[in-house]
């Protein structure tokens, strides 16, 4: 398939996944803030940190409040990672590959965009939960439509690769930020708030129910274990990397345990680390350090994917000649 088309499919999936994650963060935070008595802006700062855009926020808005945080994360078009910007970018990418994806996929993304667009114009949020739930549903619907209307060939695998790398990155970030907010709050240990806060962390990753089924009691270490190392929970980092690898190998025709390019090598190495990781070792290294290192490695995989597939060099003088002309 065309490199440009692969690139667009990869990104349209990343962007719609990103929009979904931002919606989920905000929704979980919103609910949590309602449960905590002395709620002010303090729950919203970490949310801005999760997306990695705190510097831009400070420049545009100054001090964090709930209203400003939501405006920034949902509607602000100056924020390239706001829900509005992400869905717009997903749609623009889809528009450039409309002939390749199914009409149903395009129609869903287009409707998704029109929904956000009209909400942005109204600028009201009477029922925030409903709004965020609609966004998550729109994204889930898109995934379902993609799976059931598009050939599960190269293009589909590029899409899934993008989505899974994005999701792994977001789970890492939310874990990183929330863990450090939650950990020092010794006052809360054993109090009802303890459960509320850890519950909110799980809900940010839509993991609450599945965690309960797997581990039962709320236990910070088990939560970390679940969100990082579980191989069955679809938002766990390990699951995401495993699925990414499987898509990458569908694309290259490679086998697990071997590699033929930089992307496969990087992702394979990262995945092997997860395959044989233990929670004890992770905490020994320091959770924060581990998360930051993994985030960086995922970023590198993304860069390699781009170099290998989206801007391939022609092994001949033709491109050089073209560049000279």
């Amino acid at each position: 398939m065309l490199s440009r088309v692969a690139n667009s499919i990869y990104w349209l999936n990343r962007y719609s996944e990103r929009a979904e994650n931002v919606a989920r963060f905000i929704d979980a935070n919103y609910q949590m803030a309602l449960d905590i008595p002395e709620s002010s802006g303090s729950q919203w700062q970490p949310l801005i940190n999760t997306t990695g855009d705190h510097e831009l926020f400070e420049k545009l808005y100054g001090k964090v409040t709930r209203e400003k945080a939501i405006e920034f994360l949902v509607f602000d078009r100056n924020n390239p990672n706001s829900i509005h910007s992400c869905v717009r970018a997903a749609r623009e990418n889809a528009r450039s590959v409309r002939e390749y994806i199914s009409s149903e996929m395009w129609e869903q993304l287009n409707t998704f965009y029109l929904m956000i667009n009209s909400a942005a114009k109204e600028d009201s949020m009477d029922l925030p939960h409903q709004f965020f739930a609609d966004i998550m549903t729109a994204s889930h619907t898109f995934i379902g439509i993609t799976d059931s209307t598009m050939n599960h060939g190269e293009g589909w695998h590029f899409g899934r690769l993008g989505r899974m790398l994005e999701r792994a990155d977001k789970t890492l970030r939310i874990l990183d930020v929330k863990y450090f907010i939650l950990l020092p709050s010794v006052d809360y240990v054993g109090s009802p708030y303890d459960n509320i806060l850890w519950g909110a962390l799980l809900r940010s990753a839509s993991a609450f129910e599945m965690y309960r089924k797997r581990h039962g009691r709320i236990d910070p270490k088990k939560i970390v274990d679940f969100l990082l190392l579980d191989l069955h929970f679809p938002r766990a980092v390990h699951y995401c990397l495993d699925t990414s690898m499987s898509s990458l190998q569908h694309i290259t025709g490679g086998r697990r345990g071997t590699y033929s390019n930089k992307a496969e090598q990087g992702l394979g190495r990262l995945l092997a680390g997860f395959d044989f990781a233990s929670l004890e070792e992770i905490f020994e290294l320091g959770l924060h350090e581990y998360l930051v290192k993994t985030e960086a490695e995922i970023l590198d995989v993304g860069i390699s994917v781009r170099e290998v597939f989206f801007s391939p060099q022609v092994a001949d003088t033709a491109t050089e000649m073209r560049a000279l002309e």
Partner: peptide
């Protein structure tokens, strides 16, 4: 930008070359 001339023929850039 997807197209180029290579050895006199029109080619497109794909993920497999």
């Amino acid at each position: 930008s997807d197209l180029l001339i290579h050895r006199g023929e029109v080619m497109m850039r794909t993920t497999k070359g």
